[in-house]
C-alpha cells in the first residue's frame, strides 16, 4: 500500500485559497469542484485529489499547513480512505470539475 493525499472537504470548502492546486507538481491531479460542500452550507467549493495521479510527495500538505495554514490535507493509505476521485470519473465542466467518487479497488 502507499500514501496519497486526502483533502478534508469541510475545512477546504470553508476557505477559497486554492493554493494546493498551484503547488502540486503533477498536472491534473488536485482538481477543484466549485460546488462541493455547498449542500452542507459551506461557501466556496473544495479541492480534491485524483488519487490515480497522485505520487504521494506531500508537497500539498506542506503548502496547506505552512502557507495556507488550513491543515486540510493529510497523507493516508490509499486503501483506508474509501471512495476517491479517479481520473476516469472526473468530468470537466465550464470553469469547474466534478468527480463521481468510487473505490480505487473496483474498476
Amino acid at each position: 500500500m502507499y500514501l496519497v493525499a486526502n483533502i478534508d472537504q469541510e475545512i477546504c470548502a470553508a476557505t477559497s485559497c486554492k493554493l494546493c492546486t498551484q503547488y502540486c507538481p503533477e498536472a491534473n491531479t488536485i482538481q477543484y469542484d466549485t460546488e462541493a460542500g455547498k449542500d452542507k452550507g459551506l461557501k466556496y467549493g473544495s479541492a480534491y485529489v485524483a488519487v490515480d495521479r497522485c505520487k504521494g510527495c506531500a508537497q500539498c500538505v506542506w503548502v496547506c499547513d505552512n502557507m495556507a495554514k488550513h491543515k486540510a490535507i493529510k497523507m493516508e493509505m490509499i486503501d483506508q480512505i474509501g471512495d476517491q476521485a479517479l481520473t476516469p470519473n472526473i468530468t470537466y465542466q465550464e470553469k469547474n470539475t466534478k468527480a463521481v467518487l468510487a473505490s480505487p479497488w473496483q474498476s
Partner: peptide, 18 residues
C-alpha cells in the same frame, strides 16, 4: 489562478515524486 478547473496539457510522466 484557475488551475484545477481546466484540463492541463501536460499528461502523466516519469519524473520523480515531489
Amino acid at each position: 489562478s484557475q488551475v484545477g478547473t481546466f484540463k492541463e496539457i501536460m499528461e502523466e510522466h516519469p519524473m520523480c515524486a515531489g
